[in-house]
Design a binder for these strands. Structure first.
Lengths: 196, 196
DNA sequence: CACAGCCTACCTTCTAGTAGGTAAATATCA
DNA sequence: TGATATTTACCTACTAGAAGGTAGGCTGTG
């Protein structure tokens, strides 16, 4: 994996926060330079171009996400608990402006104007997440803990879409509660239908 | 209502398309000038500042949206049909790059970096939409056509979030079908639970 | 005339990115 | 070991182009 010094790590963290706030065109090297406390040119030393920076950032984000999802699975045997752990992660993030949105979900909205190298990473993250959700939901169905109305994959796409939409609503209303209002019933719905 | 000449109307239409593609910072006066076929300065004649342009654009969009939602209600007596008409509208839009996303939903993702005048309009649209959805869902519940798991308002927030998330997924995957996969079960879920 | 609608020409500020230099850490090797 | 390369991490100073916006001048119409 790409080695990261303290400074380049700090640059990435800062860029991530700025992207979460305003997307790809919502931040500049100057913004990062101000926060990190080095000069613009020094950022180019670490990341020759903006695309390099954001691509690296996304690769790192995706690795963290994959590791996180794997951890959720290893620490929870119950599929419902696995989904709850995923939701709880984001519930904890929603209030914090530096992490209140999935970087990939945010960039996703700007796909038509994004460099192709970035689009590839964003798309890959969506596939990773929906595949993970589908496997958890599939597992729940196999255990007769969940009853599905469609395929596990389509249930996963619905689940993911609802979470992303909930992030958006929380941002618009400036109210963290909306996120929970939307996401909490998602898991209950899978479980409650059990008796059919 | 603000009077609009042919040209300023064209400017607004063009800006709307560009915002749908890349958000507030994703387009410039130069971009619009190229498409409309006039000079940058002439756009400033119609809309002194970028904020003026986008605010007017959003006011117009909101009026159209409100009129559209009212029309849906007047043409469909069945609440389920009203929801279907709303979903069908967006299903028809999803494939077309110039209208494949709700302008307000797109801008919503960038709220932290948006001028306050714009945020107000975006937030107002979300409230209008969720209130409309809640009233339709409430009506369905009163008629015993729908059975709700929460309040009409919370069902409405879930419905809206799912639709916005579905737009995002369709964009990421470059696949219109995902939108239908996510949105179609939304209405069925409200209905199917009826027998309880 | 007055004004709408457009123009050319310009301004300032910001954008990503480059050129080239300095000082310190780190390899390399006699 | 000590002398010598090389690399890392930063810097100042700069570029070309794009950003939003302004000043002021034409031209046609009510």
């Amino acid at each position: 994996m790409t080695k990261l010094t303290n400074t380049s790590d700090e640059i990435i963290r800062c860029a991530r926060t700025l992207i979460i706030a305003g997307g790809y065109n919502g931040f500049s090297y100057a913004d990062i330079a101000d926060v990190v406390g080095i000069r613009k040119a020094s950022i180019h030393h670490h990341f020759p171009s903006k695309v390099d920076l954001v691509r690296t950032l996304l690769q790192l984000y995706r690795e963290e996400a994959k590791a996180g999802l794997a951890t959720v699975k290893s620490y929870n045997t119950d599929p419902a608990d696995q989904l709850r752990a995923y939701i709880n992660y984001w519930t904890a993030c929603i209030g914090d402006p530096t992490s209140s949105f999935c970087v990939c979900a945010l960039l996703a909205s700007q796909i038509p104007v994004l460099p192709p190298e970035i689009v590839v990473e964003v798309r890959a993250h969506f596939r990773t997440l929906s595949t993970w959700l589908a496997s958890v939901i599939e597992e729940g169905a196999t255990q007769n803990a969940f009853s599905l109305t469609g395929t596990a994959q389509s249930e996963a796409e619905s689940f993911m879409a609802a979470v992303h939409g909930a992030m958006l609503s929380a941002r618009v209303y400036g109210d963290e509660k909306v996120f929970s209002v939307v996401t909490e019933p998602l898991i209950e719905r899978l479980i409650n239908d059990q008796g059919k």
